[in-house]
């Protein structure tokens, strides 16, 4: 069961990343240099995935972990979106401002065992909140995307540990999934 969960989580992550690479390919054209670069990227990703597949992690997920992740990712997303839209700050300033603030949260009370997990959660939320209003129709979209990002964060917590950009990748997929949901379902 653990192996199936690990494999399917990895498969979902891989599909979403290759979807991004496909978008790059369609955008950049079919010149030989582009094909060469994209081929190298695909090979590199496949090699990384192969290594991740060979590692068995304990993927037990607790309900409280998901609730905490959804809550703090959504808070980060909403705060960033607020700074962008109502205070008219740029996306980078909004996100990094919230990120700096969140990085000091563990210092508030060192007895909180889970406090060290709050900065990455909120920083991931800031990437969701950076979504332009042209894509995000409002706070409902942001909260929905933040919730999905929180779930994806917990599901992928034992995958690609130490990889920079993983939080951003999680945020991007949450925004894409939410866009599809709002377009076709809601």
């Amino acid at each position: 069961m653990k192996r199936i969960f690990h494999f399917s989580s990895l498969a979902l992550f891989s599909v979403l990343n290759f979807y991004f690479l496909l978008g790059v390919f369609l955008r950049s054209g079919t010149e030989p240099i582009n094909i060469f670069l994209l081929s190298l990227l695909c090979i590199g990703m496949v090699l990384s995935l192969r290594f991740q597949l060979s590692l068995m992690y304990d993927n037990q997920v607790f309900f409280f972990e998901i609730v905490r992740a959804v809550l703090f990712v959504s808070i980060g997303a909403v705060l960033t979106f607020y700074l962008m839209i109502f205070l008219h700050l740029s996306a980078v300033i909004s996100s990094s401002l919230i990120g700096v603030g969140a990085s000091f949260l563990p210092s508030l009370n060192r007895k909180w065992g889970y406090a060290t997990q709050l900065p990455p959660l909120m920083y991931c939320g800031t990437f969701v909140g950076m979504t332009s209003p042209a894509i995000a129709s409002g706070l409902t979209f942001i909260i929905c995307a933040g919730s999905i990002a929180g779930v994806l964060f917990v599901v992928s917590r034992n995958m690609f540990n130490g990889f920079g950009g993983k939080l951003g990748a999680v945020a991007l997929w949450a925004v894409i999934i939410t866009s599809f949901l709002f377009l076709f379902v809601l």
Binding site: L37, L40, G44, L47, S48, F163, G165, G168, V170, W173
Partner: peptide, 30 residues
Amino acid sequence: NTEGVFMKYGGRLGASAFIAISFTYGFQIA
């Protein structure tokens, strides 16, 4: 090379960074 891909989507830069690190790490392992 991705200036028009997923523009205005939050997390795009992070996904690009993730792919770059995956590429380097993958070849390192190989």
